[in-house]
Amino acid sequence: MELYVAALGFGLISVSVIAIAAVGFTMQFGITNMINLAYGEVMIVCAYVAFYVNRAGVNVWAAMIAAALAGAVLSFLLNRFLYAPFQRKGTNLIGMVIISLAASLILANILLPIVGYDTSSYQVDQGPLLRWNGLVLTTAQIAIIVVAVLLMLAIHGLLRYTRLGKAMRATAANPILARNCGIPTQRVIDMVWLLTGALCGVAGVVAGMNSENFAVASGAAYLITIIAAAVLGGAGQPYGAMIGALIIGIVTELSAAAIAPEYKEVVAFTILVLVMVLRPQGLLAKRGALAAAG
């Protein structure tokens, strides 16, 4: 039993990491109609930015801000100079998926000669252990959870209570109508990429902190968990991604305790397959995967 309580603790941190990443991923898809398969690699690039800042003697939490900035800029540029031109050209959804995969390949292999094949890890002051009914977490882990909760609340506030959030929701629902109503959709989309890019950067760092070490090759594993969470919740739905992250995070960590940690991603994948067979539109979405392409 104790094993499972401890696993639940790990699960909470996983949930935090996945939620930050999946909300960014799903917002890119929901608002700009772009399944950005380079997301995992952007996370890794940001993780390495924070790694070098951290190694230069800066606190990892400050390095996280550098990573968020790097993620924002990189995602913005990726959209401005790669995705948006292709979308304007009228490339179909499939073409866009292939392009983002190619972008992911390019990012990973530019990064590889720079940082090498070896795994890296942050120097984190884990702080004193906190115990509560068998749940054991370090202060740094609690901090990750707090960061995630704050970010989720910020996203919620942004989407519900600000003009920008309203404009984002309008753009997601119908970009042409939104533009005709006087919403500067181009600027809204730029803001989406900056914000989700920052989320992606933070996600890269917390993922790196959570998994002892990381390497260029970790991008694919990150991406799969993110896709599972986003699809489970209903792709394009930020709240769905949060619920998806909650389920995937807890279930994978419990399964790691019950079966074996190597099969965490397999469990995430099994959930994904079940969702696709039983409820392809996801838990929250009204249209999602079933909607006509376009």
Binding site: I35, L37, L93, I94, M96, V97, I98, L101, I224, I227, A228, V231, A235, F269, L272, M276, P280, A289, L290, A291, A292, A293
Partner: peptide
């Protein structure tokens, strides 16, 4: 599934 979902499922 929609075509782009097919693609990402197969990638996964």
């Amino acid at each position: 599934l929609r075509s782009d979902y097919q693609a990402i499922s197969l990638l996964v």
